[in-house]
Simulated assay, not measured.
Amino acid sequence: LFRDNVMFDGEQLTGFFDFYFAGVDTWLFDLAVCLNDWCIDLPSGMHIGERAMAMLQAYNRVRPLSAAERALLPALLRAGALRFWISRLWDYHLPREAAMLTPHDPRHFERVLRGRVLHPVSLSAIL
């Protein structure tokens, strides 16, 4: 659920698309992917703690994270960043014929991954 796949009318959520791979594995991976997009500084890929705190607190009100999920989230943040770096490298270097497909810059998720490795997110500081 990337921010460029969500539509708003003012502050009202009106729709989202390109969500077909979500919900096919652990929900924690989907949450990590959302955190890696919505809770970072776009130019640098660095984590923004206040956004992550807001997202995780809202998520916990609906579905609290287990102790195991809390322990695994930093690793899944790295895994999510790696997954999208690799898929964007693939799309960039081996483009498919598709009129509507514009490859994203793979360096974006490389920056996110490097940030997650060099500065792991501490959930104790968030939750």
Rank of each mutant, 00 (worst) to 15 (best):
N5T: 13
M7A: 09
D9V: 06
T14I: 15
G15Q: 14
G15S: 10
F16P: 01
F17K: 00
D18H: 05
D18G: 06
D18R: 06
D18L: 05
D25Y: 07
T26W: 10
T26Q: 09
D30P: 08
D30C: 11
L31M: 08
V33C: 02
W38G: 05
W38K: 03
I40T: 15
H47S: 07
E50M: 05
E50R: 04
R51P: 01
R51F: 13
R51G: 01
A52I: 03
M53K: 15
A54L: 10
M55F: 12
L56T: 03
Q57W: 05
Y59L: 00
V62H: 10
R63K: 12
P64C: 09
S66F: 05
S66P: 06
A67M: 14
A67S: 15
R70D: 02
L72W: 09
P74A: 13
A75M: 06
R78Q: 15
A81Y: 05
A81T: 05
I86W: 09
S87G: 05
P95W: 02
P95E: 11
P95F: 03
A98Q: 05
M100Y: 15
L101Y: 09
L101D: 07
L101M: 07
L101I: 06
H104W: 06
H104D: 13
P106A: 13
F109D: 03
L113N: 10
R114Q: 14
G115E: 02
G115K: 00
R116K: 09
R116Q: 14
L118N: 13
P120H: 11
P120K: 04
V121D: 04
S122F: 08
L123G: 04
L123Q: 04
L127S: 04
